[in-house]
Design a protein around this nucleic acid. Structure first.
Length: 805
RNA sequence: GCCGAAGUGAUGGAAUGGCAGACGUGAUGGAUUCAAAAUCCAUUGUUGGCAACAACGUGUGGGUUCAAGUCCCACCUUCGGCACCA
């Protein structure tokens, strides 16, 4: 027998067997069997092929899926392709190939790469978001959102390249210029479809209490939604009939307002332009800020900019004082009301702004000018310089002020969310057409559900138009239709949906992927939903994960699905970095191609290395030597076949370690501590080499433990041991706690907390006994060197700490 | 600026408050071989010592504890994310 195995042969063999027998296909007619639904984020089939990051997530849940099958579950572990999107469209434009062809080629490549890695996906349930049979239902869900008032059109700024004359995604804007031509990018407003995710802000927060997501995902979603309680109130302009609304979380500081700030886009400027004496400067400032994205405004944190509106002031409703109004781009139109009341004494940003522009600062509580945040909870802090709320605590002052505002009709209590509505339009070709028809008589008319899908027409040229319309706008034969309501001439909506649309519900389609009557049958949804375990990247926490929860909650509300939350458990994997510790990227030249690694060491060793390289949730640099180490280990496992003894069952020498290995591997898999699970198997194999022999039953158990990580070699060796039927449905091994126990064990002797020696003690010793007797032992007395024992602390299985003087 | 994560040997990393460095990589020595590769066995935190052993050691400085990589306070550095969120 060769000292190593040939993965090329056995991996191909087992992949074929799995495909032919269909052992990994979820059973659809099996409602009396308990189910388990494992989900990974379906890949975007890019031209570069699979990245080493994909197998990290895929292998992790493959381990869970395989273990669950052994535990008797009917497992659904599906795969699909999220194939609409910008890179494919841009590639198509550049190379003059239809994006559909590019997508087909890329999917083909991805599927082959995934199959080579031996994932136990159910390939019969593959979905592809660009398939009209799939996006028919994406459009259908959009229509339901529309009919329930959650889709609407609104003027929104888009990135506009002044040289290409087209709209750009944020990603295509680099340092304020167009990525492709280097032309200047400005903000231009355009009518866009929006989805009212803000209606679900509270539900999206509340739902998190009912699911098992890792803590940092919950925290990030909650921070993103950004609920804050406060008050909305209005300041009247002096001598004008206009109320300037602001939101504040600190109504208790109203007496400390010394100026106000509005965003450069605020409508007040246009409304009162003839009263503003420095209007030219203001217009100028508006122009400059138009060139900045929100992100740039946030980057320019060091220097605050702005100017005052000369000729217009507001009146503070609590004390009738006149306050100046300033314009600055640190206030965003898209959050709150686009205007703030500034309290420089108690807000850091306002303080910086006031200091720079020499604005007055009035302290209104005893925490000091720019006091520590923690003083907010301090009961000693009281309100000062504030008339009728003087002497109150901050909490009490807030409540009293809100009551006062409501009584006077100036303001009211208000919960505000940072979350913004979802911009749902793209002026692009490669996306789902939005199923709306614009009729000159009837206005917006939804496409009749029986006419879905609205199929993307084949066209020659996917370039965006000069006017900023989608390329679809140029196809008259497609655009011009009859109005479904009145039958008159009308036009189709030419915007398409963003890539996020198809990925917001794909996990439901997997339940019943070939259904042409419904997006999935009620029966299939009732059986399979919710997803039991969803793993994906942290980068999707605030967009995809939130969007898909929103769609699911909505579908639940209209009765289309019975469970409210789509995912019961969410975990997240760490990024794989290049071997130099930097992010893998073409430009850095540190990209590892999975195909090369599989060619060299095989899929089993590659999968094992991806799980072994470090903690699953942390970023880890790649090391090809480390990967080879895993192949070396599998070769060591392979050679165990030469060490088989005739003994039945488990041998006395290996029994305790084998039981504790079964326990550790099982627990570690469940907690995604794959690295230590693999280390435990390595330790066991090292021990076998020390002992020199292994029984057939011991080797079989080891193979069952190894199978989820490295299934091909496990199946092959299992077969060679003489077993039939494959491992897939063999029960997960059990362990016996009592088998791990020993009669006596070794503990450390500590003198005053420092390890000074070791001794062997019987395992049945109680804590009291040990603490009384052990310090009298010869070994201990010798170490004490004449010191007097004061007390002793015994930790079973670990140590005795003798305190002495 | 804000939010999040992390700092442990040459290196990737282990460690329910309980013997720091499991397991892997690399390195060194030995066995095997004509030789190499592969394999097997052993050693491998630093310093001192022939040795038993001792001192030091988890980013820095304090603290709590019989006992701290782990808990608390203050700070430094690196990485990731961001919408100055009133």
């Amino acid at each position: 027998m060769t000292p190593y195995y040939n993965p090329k042969i056995i991996e191909k063999k087992w992949q074929q067997i799995w495909e032919e027998t269909g052992v990994y296909n979820a059973k659809s007619d099996c409602t009396n069997q308990k189910k388990y639904y494992c989900l990974i984020e379906f890949p975007y089939p890019s031209g570069q092929g699979l990245h080493v990051g994909h197998p990290r997530s895929n292998t992790a849940l493959d381990i869970i899926a395989r273990k669950r099958r052994m535990e008797g579950y009917n497992v659904l572990y599906p795969i699909g392709y999220d194939a609409f999107g910008l890179p494919t469209e841009n590639y198509a434009i550049k190379n003059k190939i239809h994006p559909r062809i590019v997508t087909e080629q890329n999917i083909e490549k991805f599927r082959n790469q995934l199959k080579r890695l031996g994932f136990s996906f159910d390939y019969t349930r593959e979905v592809n978001t660009t398939d009209p049979n799939y996006y028919k239902w994406t459009q259908w869900i959009f229509l339901q959102l529309y009919k329930n008032g959650l889709a609407y059109k609104s003027k929104m700024p888009i990135n506009w390249c002044t040289s290409c004359k087209c709209g750009l995604a944020n990603e295509e804007v680099v340092n304020g210029v167009c990525e492709r031509c280097g032309g200047e990018v400005v903000q231009k407003t355009k009518e866009q479809w929006m989805l009212k995710i803000t209606n679900y802000a509270q539900k999206l927060i509340d739902g998190l209490d009912t699911v098992d997501f890792i803590e940092k995902v919950k925290t990030q979603q909650i921070n993103w939604i950004g609920r804050s309680e406060g008050a909305e109130l209005s300041f009247n302009l002096k001598d004008k009939d206009y109320a300037l609304n602001v939101f504040t979380t600190r109504p208790d500081t109203l007496f400390g307002v010394t100026y106000m700030v509005i965003s450069p886009e605020h409508p007040l400027i246009d409304l009162f332009q003839e009263y503003i004496s420095n209007i030219d400067d203001v217009r100028n400032y508006q122009e400059v800020s138009k060139r900045k994205s929100d992100f740039e405004r946030t980057e320019l944190v060091k220097e605050k900019t702005g100017l005052s509106l000369e000729g217009i002031t507001a009146i503070n409703p609590v004390n009738g004082k006149e306050v100046p109004i300033w314009v600055s781009d640190y206030v965003l139109m898209s959050y709150g009301t686009g205007a703030i009341m500034a309290v420089p004494a108690h807000d850091m940003r306002d303080y910086e702004f006031a200091t720079k522009f020499n604005l007055p600062i009035v302290q209104v509580n005893t925490s000091g000018i720019i006091g520590n945040e923690s003083t907010l909870n301090n009961k000693d802090v009281v309100i000062i310089n504030s008339g009728f709320i003087d002497g109150l605590s901050i909490e009490d002052a807030k409540a009293k002020m809100i009551d006062w505002l409501e009584e006077k009709g100036i303001g009211r209590k208000k919960v505000n969310y940072k979350l913004r509505d979802w911009v749902f339009s793209r002026q692009r070709y490669w996306g789902e057409p939005i199923p709306i028809i614009h009729c000159p008589h009837c206005g917006q008319v939804p496409v009749d559900e029986k006419d879905l899908p609205v199929v993307l027409p084949d066209i020659e040229n996917y370039e965006p138009t000069d006017s900023g319309e989608s390329p679809l706008a140029k196809i008259d034969s497609w655009v011009n239709v009859k109005c479904p309501k009145c039958g008159e001439d009308a036009k189709r909506e030419t915007d398409t949906m963003p890539q996020w649309a198809g990925s917001s519900w794909y996990f439901m389609r997997y339940c019943d992927p070939h259904n042409d009557k419904e997006f999935a049958s009620q029966e299939a949804l009732d059986y399979w939903m919710a997803v039991d375990w969803y793993n994906g990247g942290m980068e999707h926490t605030t967009l995809h994960l939130l969007y898909s929860r929103f769609w699911h909650l909505f579908l639940h509300d209209i009765g289309a699905i019975s469970v409210p939350e789509p995912y019961l458990k969410r975990t997240s994997h760490g990024m794989i970095l290049g071997s130099n510790g930097e992010k893998m990227s073409k430009s850095r030249g540190n990209v590892i191609n999975p195909d090369d690694i599989v060619d060299e060491i095989g899929a089993d060793a590659f999968r094992m290395y991806e799980m072994f390289m470090g903690a699953f949730d942390q970023a880890i640099p790649w090391s090809t030597n480390g990967a080879k180490g895993c192949k070396k280990f599998l070769d060591r496992v392979w050679r165990l076949q030469e060490m088989l003894s005739d003994e039945k069952g488990y041998s006395k020498a290996l029994n305790p370690l084998l039981h504790s290995t079964i326990k550790k591997v099982g627990i570690d898999y469940e907690n995604m501590k794959f690295n230590t699970a693999i280390a435990a198997m390595m330790s066991f194999v090292n021990e076998v080499y020390q002992v020199g022999t292994i029984t057939k039953d011991e080797l079989k158990t080891l193979l069952l433990l190894l199978y989820p990580v490295s299934p091909h070699i496990a199946e092959e060796m299992y077969e060679r041991l003489g077993y039939e039927g494959g491992i897939s449905l063999v029960a997960w091994p059990e362990y016996d706690e009592s088998a791990m126990e020993k009669d006596e064990y070794e503990i450390a002797i500590q003198i005053n907390g420092k390890v000074r020696g070791r001794m062997i003690i019987p395992s049945n010793m109680s804590k009291e006994e040990a603490e009384k007797e052990l310090p009298l032992r010869e070994e201990v007395i010798e170490l004490l060197k004449g010191q007097k024992v004061i007390k002793a602390i015994f930790v079973p299985n670990r140590l005795i700490n003798v305190i002495a003087k």
